[in-house]
Amino acid sequence: MLRVAMMFVSSRAVAEEVVQEAWLGVLKGLDRFEGRSSLKTWIFRILTNTAKTRGEREGRSVPFSSLGGDAGDDEAPVDADRFFGDGHRWAGHWASSPRNPRDVPEERLLADEARQRIAAAIETLPENQRAVITLRDVDGFDADEACEILGISEVNQRVLLHRARTKVRSALGQYLDEEAAA
């Protein structure tokens, strides 16, 4: 929840206050909860509303969709040189294909090293991508719930998720390449 709150406010300290305020909002509003969404979604919605209000009061009224910006996201999901180039009879097909994750012994895959790489990749994501991948793949919300919580469109959610997961996959891919070379 702290991670989501931090998307909208200026500091961790303020985010902690937001989380606290949100929980109080939950307690006060609990008897009004109609069960149209899951309880968890409803709680997170209160959180984002609280965070946005606080963010606006601080003078931060940046629309969610532009948080993080699009500039660095013109990166291709995979280095172009891993595919055959135009003019080759197999243009667009793998020249240097990804490692089969099953080639790596399971212990290595589940090792802390792999997890650390993933965690590090998530930390470097722009805020909006980080929020979406956190809600979806860490907190386990589905696509509709994530859209509801963040107040974004289905298309927007999917684009951000694609970019975030692509970067995380890339970190894993690199780890596997290194493991195979070792």
């Binding site: 089969n100 099953r102 997890r115 860490v138 386990g140 997961r165 995380v168 996959r169 596997l176």
Partner: peptide
């Protein structure tokens, strides 16, 4: 497969 595993590891 890498994508699916990275989703799991993210979790």
């Amino acid at each position: 497969d890498q994508l699916r595993i990275s989703i799991e590891l993210t979790g």
